[in-house]
Amino acid sequence: MIAQNIGFLIIAIVMIVAALRVVTTNNVVHAALWLVVVLAGAAAQYILLAAEFVAVTQVLVYIGAVMVLFLFGTMLTRARIGAESDLNNSYKKLGIPVGLVMLVAMGLALTDSFGDEKLPESAKVVSTQEVSDQIFGPYLLPFWALSFVLLAAVVGAIVLARKD
């Protein structure tokens, strides 16, 4: 238990720092790389949460595919590779109180609802088979809907991005 808690703490701190860097850095490429750290940390947290299939998917889809998309997007929009001064807008000052108020609201709600409830100790890792039984059983219809969303997204992305 101790080991898990220590692991969680380290990863959580790294994630928070990395996330803060993503939203504050002055370099788009650096932001993308910090985002990789956040996503990888999230994948690690998923493993701690006994969700190995989701973790693997996170690595494959997010770190593999989505990051490549981001980097290509950065490249194609010809962002400067070096530091840039005007990545933030004038609402920066508004963002801090907004984020803090939300955090306070959520923190109050969480402490109120869950207090010091503990996660079950002997949680067994959820197997891929169980997840697929769920997806292709009761959640088949959302799965279909999702397939259509992906199809529409593919078609839409091509239509939007092609030159003519």
């Binding site: 939300m102 609201a105 109050l108 709600a109 109120d112």
Partner: peptide, 25 residues
Amino acid sequence: KVSQYAALLFSAAAVAALVLVIINT
């Protein structure tokens, strides 16, 4: 400006959430 809209939206949501939490606790 989209950022401004987003800021207004989120701040409204945050305030509403805060109010809701305070009422319920």
